[in-house]
Design a protein around this nucleic acid. Structure first.
Lengths: 336, 336
DNA sequence: TACGTTGGTGTTAACGTTTGCGCAAATTGT
DNA sequence: ACAATTTGCGCAAACGTTAACACCAACGTA
């Protein structure tokens, strides 16, 4: 059906290697032959078989990417960043959705390894990196983004400074006059959840503010978690005055609960979180949020992979921690 | 570095084919040998080279997907649907972002064809399907989703009935008492844009409502288009009373303009559109919208590919037009 | 005349699999 | 006890490429 090198070669009565040389522009080929080959390629609509090439070259020219949720704009933008760098370097990417599921994530790691990807970029939902260990040992470069699983030896990692970012959010709330705080984080085995919580608490301690442990909860990074936890708290007599949600979905859920209880943001209760970028511009209230440079995280991670593949012998590990950027909005602004 | 069949074979003093047979569970292998092989596979952490397999099998077990924008939740959900079916059938997917760019789209088609995908699912941004023609001829199954490029012969296609959906939106607005309409669509060479416009206009005509052509504009499917076009209209003395935006981003932009001009939705002007699903639940006003079953579109499209690959001889083409589903919200509700 | 050079091309061996074929040994049936 | 069958396994070809190597012809140079 599809034309192969052999078809072209036979069609022109030359050898396959001659055709191959024309296509790759390597080695010598007579001018006239070259033109005849080029013509035949067009005529037969020849497309090189990338699978065969990959096998021969021992490189798939493909980067594997695993994220928890592709429909989350944060991850979608990371993917776009990766894709840009990949394109520039004539690589392509395979994206897998772990659906926040550690088992699925592991399956995908295996799948991608079998597909001989040149490297893996993973926003892992796992707490440790045991699974990744053996693949690394066998020479598969792995770059973690966003969440950093615990692992003994070195690793490549790209993320923002979650600790510092949360610290700054707390500072902002204190400055606005809030004193009674609540925290809803994600699964604490994920560094994104634990570091954000720790940074926030540290700031409270540094400012001599009492930590109210009954208003610290760990759920999933999902709307439902934010909603149900906040709902429960608001049913009590003692209510928090300012909420720190560890990601956007938790915040959305919490705000929904707050609205339902008829409370006002930010007068009755303030809300701050991570990653609440609003492409529509229509979300009310606009939320104070640390906005991660998702696209950049993607490009940086991809560049690490590219560099590693060019330089296979060098076994250096890069840890890139970006400065957080905070957008202050009405959800936490008491003073004008 | 990585272990191959040969490594295992040598390690055990058996032939490669024996090892291969154990792995694939095909052909006869003695019980004891099988166990020894299985053990060695674990010990050496053998992972089958999927590239070599694909070459030999003449199938990459991979579905290619091209969408205009992965960070649009609509496409992200389509991808999730495709991925689900792919997983169930032991296939994987490669997702490409055409960025609403027809040139990039064509590049990706070629790339995916070279990667020997078993089929292509494309939400094309092009007006015609010339590029796809030759690939189809060479036996590559192609399923169009969402937008249907013009093409002479048959094709596989999955989408909702855009014409009918827009007709229903118009009906709803008329029923609410609106009489002066504006339309902002996307590029008219895309069926998604033209059909939506036509369906809406047809309903107006059927109801004897005058078409105000100065309030019909075609831009891009982007926020900026909705914003600038609406802004211009609102600067005039004669203003429309109800807007039909052909997709969510156009609507967001238009609403931004409406808000800036201090007009009230839906009292001064109503807004309806396509695909304004709000995962946050916080967008104000909540928009009346035709919500496409994105996930289903994905699963259906993927199933078509799967079927085609099982049944290569059969050359049937499927056209699946789903019934539209409309969510009526405050952005168009005058009466209580 | 002979000899290096170089341009153009074909031959061949890989890359890691899968699989049809064949052969010897083991098992079964008569 | 001998044929017929079954079982277990190796051999080798193939999938579509690439690239090291070798070869021949034509040419320039000593």
């Amino acid at each position: 059906m599809k034309a192969t090198l052999k078809d072209i070669a036979e069609h022109l009565n030359v050898s396959v290697s001659t055709v191959s040389r024309v296509i790759n522009g390597k080695g010598r080929v007579g001018k006239e032959t070259r033109e005849r080959v080029l013509e035949a390629i067009k005529e037969l609509n020849y497309q090189p078989n990338e699978i065969a090439r990959s096998l021969k070259r021992q490189s798939s020219r493909t980067i594997g990417v695993i994220v928890p949720d592709i429909s989350n704009a944060f991850y979608a933008n990371i993917i776009k960043g990766i894709e840009k760098v990949a394109r520039e370097n004539e690589k392509s990417i395979i994206v897998c959705n772990s659906d926040e599921n550690i088992t699925l994530e592991e399956e995908y790691v295996q799948l991608l390894a079998q597909k001989q990807v040149i490297g893996l970029i993973v926003a892992s939902v796992g707490g440790n990196a045991e699974v990744f260990k053996q693949y690394r040992q066998h020479g598969l470069p792995i770059v973690f983004i966003d969440n950093l699983p615990k692992i003994e030896d070195n690793y490549d990692f790209v993320a923002i400074d979650n600790y510092k970012a949360s610290y700054k959010l707390a500072e902002h709330l204190i400055e606005q006059g809030y004193r009674k705080f609540a925290i809803i984080t994600g699964p604490l085995n994920q560094s994104t959840a634990s570091e954000r919580q720790e940074g926030f608490i540290k700031c409270l301690k540094d400012n001599g503010i009492e930590i109210n442990y009954k208003f610290i909860a760990s759920g999933e990074f999902k709307l439902e978690s934010g909603y149900s936890i906040m709902k429960k708290w608001l049913k009590g007599i003692d209510k928090p005055m300012a909420l720190f949600a560890a990601n956007n979905f938790i915040a959305y859920g919490a705000i929904k609960a707050i609205n339902e209880e008829g409370l006002k943001i930010p007068e009755d209760i303030a809300v701050v979180c991570f990653d609440a970028v609003d492409v529509t511009g229509l979300i009310k209230p606009q939320i104070t949020s640390v906005n991660q440079p998702a696209f950049d995280i993607g490009t940086i991670a991809a560049n690490i992979i590219i560099r590693k593949e060019k330089n296979k012998k060098v076994k250096a590990y890069e840890k890139v921690i970006l400065e957080p950027d905070m957008a202050i909005n009405e959800s936490s602004l008491l003073k004008k």
